[in-house]
Structure formats: structure tokens, C-alpha cells
């Protein structure tokens, strides 16, 4: 799976290009944690190109937001499709993340 990484000012946005499942979830998690270390937590995840996530993908997202929670922050998700929003709601994980409609809104939230 390709994971695009964009800098928006001081904020880094990673955008998985496809579903976050199985081994791709590990790759996504490693990529997100790498960005976290580099940017002091200024990270947003753009899910606009991600049609769905499975349980491994959810675990990866939760692992990243738990790392952020140690410093009082949560992972910012943007552009999540209806399927992913529904999965997060059904699993009760929606509150573990901040949700934004698009990347700009997510980046602006760091101001």
C-alpha cells in the first residue's frame, strides 16, 4: 500500500492510498509512528483515499492515538468515508479520534 506524506506547514499529513488491512496496517502504523517521532505529534491522517479499515487497521489507528494520548492529544482523522465513520461508531472508537471533513480543517486545528 502506498502511503502519501505531505507537509502542511509544520503539520504532516499521511494518506494511505487504499484499505488499511492486515500487513498494510503494520506499514501504516510504522509510518505514523515515524512521523510522530519526527514532528512531535503534529500528525493528521487523511483517509479520503481509504475505502475501509479492518480490525488490524483499527488497532493501528488506536495504537497511534494512544501514543498521542500520553501527551494529552488525540489522532486527527480527516476525509473519512461513511464506511469508516460507521465502523468507528459501531466499535465505540469514534471518541478516540478527532474528526475533520478535510485536510485543511485538520491542519488548521493545530493553530
Amino acid at each position: 500500500m502506498q502511503i502519501k506524506e505531505q507537509r502542511h506547514g509544520a503539520v504532516t499529513v499521511i494518506s494511505p492510498q487504499g484499505p488499511v488491512c492486515t500487513t498494510d496496517a503494520e506499514q501504516f502504523q510504522a509510518s505514523a509512528l515515524d512521523v510522530l517521532g519526527k514532528t512531535m505529534g503534529r500528525l493528521a491522517v487523511d483517509l479520503s483515499a481509504t475505502p475501509y479499515v479492518d480490525s488490524m487497521g483499527l488497532e493501528a489507528l488506536v495504537a497511534v492515538t494512544e501514543i498521542l494520548a500520553q501527551s494529552g492529544r488525540v489522532l486527527k482523522l480527516c476525509g473519512a468515508c461513511e464506511t469508516i465513520r460507521e465502523i468507528l461508531e459501531l466499535t465505540g472508537l469514534s471518541d478516540h479520534f478527532d474528526h475533520y471533513a478535510d485536510v485543511n480543517s485538520a491542519v488548521r486545528s493545530f493553530l
Binding site: 506547514g9 509544520a10 503539520v11 512531535m40 505529534g41 503534529r42 491542519v107 493545530f110 493553530l111
Partner: peptide, 12 residues
């Protein structure tokens, strides 16, 4: 406080 994004925005 991490003001990096604010400073980048100011600069921009």
C-alpha cells in the same frame, strides 16, 4: 507550548 504551526502560519 508547541507553536511551530502558528509560526509557520505567521511566516506564510
Amino acid at each position: 507550548e508547541d507553536v511551530t504551526q502558528q509560526r509557520v502560519a505567521d511566516k506564510s
